[in-house]
Every structure is written in structure tokens, then in C-alpha cells.
């Protein structure tokens, strides 16, 4: 763009546009904060007036858990551009660590539960490092299959250990999870990941996604940033697992199988890889959908799988992209960027 020297007026225009962009960004942030607080208040009012009913309020915590899982997985899939099929594994490690802590520690709830969330997250993060160090030398299909293998290893180990309750499950967990805690945890996840993505580190992570070789050549420490994304994603998945355990009051290793990882992946893909608002909306929709459309519950997985295929085909097929442009033109919608 700027091959020749910029004149004074051009510099001024550039500065003005930058200022405008900053203002727009700030407006967006303020809007998001207001939206977040409003949603919290509205949900609390709805719970206390009983407008949501038992079933409705029972779904709020799973929604928050799914938001945490989807947003954290989006960091790996959408921003780092690697496929992790072991997110349920991180979730289960965190869930077992946090729940074992609350079962054995006898502290007041206010201290115990947040501590359990952090312990669950940290344990999962440690596993993120353990699996990350060898796995991150790989990329693409190999990395995906290693994360899958890792998830399965975790599941069979939990299944065969005694102190985790084995295949029968871990029982006697207190039902600490309520909407407020889950909501705050989900908000922290979103804020941390949004800020990370918009920071210098986030740009390094997206550079790795776009072209790993040129990112490395630019001096980005690829292994470090891959590991960082995995550790952060694992941390929040672990914390989400703790919430999950304290919501259901029972943990079974069978819950955290490959299908659970795929379900989270479906949320991320449907919401749009690399879009955090998309992940949030998709998490809400996918959690509510089976409850709203009970008749269709048999077809749920079929619909998910078709959605996955169609999303992928439509996002990268040139024919469909042209078709979409044509439809946009006919409807009079002026050109947004068609192909991502």
C-alpha cells in the first residue's frame, strides 16, 4: 500500500481512521459488557420469579458449561487452526480433580468451590502440558489423532482406578453449581480468551493458523504458542468439568468419551471457527435444541453430522460461494466478504 512517502494529509486521514476504529472497538466492548450484565440480571429475575420453570432454570448451568467448553475449544480449532479431539479428556481430568477435592476437603463452600474450580482447571492445564509437549511437534491429522488417543487413555485409566470410583462413577458430590457461579465462570472464560485473541499473543496464534512456516520464519515461537493455547483451553475445559460434576452430583467416565468431544466440536463449527460470539450462540442453541425438539431427539446426531458436512462444504466450495454472492446481489445486500 504505502510504497511512496505519505503526505501530511494522508497521515492525518490514517490517524483519523485509526481513531475511529478504536472508538468503534471501544463501543463494541461497552456494548458487550452491558449485554453480559443485562443477560445475567434478566436470567436471575426469570429464575426468581419462576418464569423459566424448573426445567428452564436447570438448563442455564449446562448452557454456561457448554459456552466455556466451546469458547475454549474455539481457541484451538478456530484461532490456532489445529483439531483437538480430546477436549472431553481435559474436561474429565478437571472434573475428577475438582470433585475429589470438594469431597475430601472440609472447607466452607465459599472458599471450597472456587478453589475446586481452580484446582480442576490447573490439573487439566498440567495434562495439557503433558500431552502438549510431545503432541505439539506434530500438526494436522497426527495432532488430531494424538488428542483423540489421549482422551481415550484418560477415560480407560479413570475407568480402572479405585479412587475415582471406576466404571460405577464418582458419587457423593455436593451440588454446588448454581447459575451465578456458572455464569461468572463462563464470563471469565470469554473475557480471558477474547483478550488473549485480540492481543499480540493472539495475533501470533492466528499467524500460526494462517501459515505455520512463515510464522516460524517471522520469529514466532510456534511450540510455545501452541502449548499456550492448549494449556489455556485445557484450563477452562477443566473448570467447566468441575462445574459439570457439581451440577450432576455424579461423574461417570463413560460421559467423557469421544462423542462428547465431537459435540463440543459441532458447537464450535456451527458457531463459526474463529468467532467467539458464534460459539456462545451455538452453545446456547445446541443445549436448548434437544429440550425444545424432544420428538427429534433420535435424529439429533444425524442432524449434527449433516450440519458438520454441509458447513464444511459450503464454507470452502467455490460454487457455493458464487451462488451465495449471486443471492446476495439479488436480495440487494451489498458485498460483505463472501469467502472467509
Amino acid at each position: 500500500m504505502a510504497k511512496k512517502q505519505m503526505t501530511g494529509s494522508e497521515k492525518l486521514i490514517l490517524a483519523q481512521t485509526q481513531l475511529k476504529a478504536n472508538l468503534k472497538k471501544r463501543k463494541k466492548t461497552v456494548f458487550a459488557v452491558i449485554l453480559g450484565i443485562a443477560a445475567f440480571i434478566i436470567c436471575n429475575v426469570l429464575i426468581s420469579t419462576g418464569a423459566l420453570g424448573r426445567q428452564g432454570s436447570g438448563l442455564l448451568v449446562p448452557i454456561c458449561i457448554n459456552i466455556m467448553l466451546a469458547v475454549s475449544l474455539n481457541l484451538i480449532v478456530g484461532f490456532l487452526g489445529e483439531l483437538s479431539l480430546g477436549h472431553a479428556g481435559f474436561m474429565s481430568v478437571g472434573a475428577y480433580a475438582g470433585c475429589l477435592f470438594t469431597i475430601h476437603a472440609n472447607l466452607p463452600t465459599i472458599i471450597e468451590f472456587p478453589l475446586a474450580l481452580i484446582i480442576g482447571g490447573l490439573t487439566a492445564a498440567v495434562f495439557g502440558v503433558i500431552i502438549g509437549l510431545p503432541a505439539l511437534r506434530l500438526n494436522g491429522d497426527y495432532l488430531a489423532i494424538v488428542t483423540l488417543a489421549f482422551g481415550e487413555i484418560i477415560r480407560s485409566i479413570i475407568n480402572s482406578l479405585d479412587f475415582t470410583g471406576g466404571a460405577g462413577g464418582l458419587k457423593g458430590i455436593n451440588k454446588f453449581s448454581n447459575f451465578s457461579v456458572a455464569y461468572i465462570a463462563a464470563m471469565i472464560t470469554i473475557v480471558v480468551i477474547v483478550n488473549l485473541v485480540n492481543s499480540r499473543h493472539g495475533r501470533a496464534i492466528t499467524a500460526i493458523r494462517d501459515n505455520i512456516i512463515s510464522a516460524e520464519a517471522t520469529g514466532i515461537n510456534v511450540v510455545f504458542y501452541k502449548l499456550l493455547s492448549f494449556v489455556i483451553a485445557a484450563f477452562f475445559a477443566g473448570a467447566a468439568g468441575v462445574l459439570y460434576g457439581h451440577h450432576l452430583a455424579i461423574l461417570k467416565p463413560g460421559t467423557f468419551d469421544f462423542n462428547k468431544s465431537i459435540e463440543i466440536l459441532v458447537i464450535v463449527v456451527l458457531g463459526g471457527m474463529g468467532s467467539i460470539p458464534g460459539s456462545i450462540i451455538a452453545a446456547i442453541v445446541i443445549t436448548l435444541l434437544p429440550e425444545v425438539l424432544r420428538d427429534l431427539s433420535d435424529y439429533r446426531m444425524l442432524i449434527y453430522s449433516i450440519a458438520l458436512i454441509v458447513m464444511m462444504l459450503s464454507s470452502s466450495s467455490t460454487h457455493l460461494a458464487e451462488l451465495r454472492m449471486k443471492i446476495r446481489k439479488k436480495l440487494g445486500l451489498s458485498g460483505r466478504k463472501g469467502v472467509a
Binding site: G81, G140, D141, V269, L308, S316
Partner: peptide, 11 residues
């Protein structure tokens, strides 16, 4: 990208 193909294959 390999990621797209892999997700399709899982689908």
C-alpha cells in the same frame, strides 16, 4: 485446508 477435510470426515 486439512482441518476442513478432517472435520468433514468426522461428519
Amino acid at each position: 485446508s486439512p482441518l476442513t477435510v478432517l472435520i468433514t470426515a468426522i461428519g
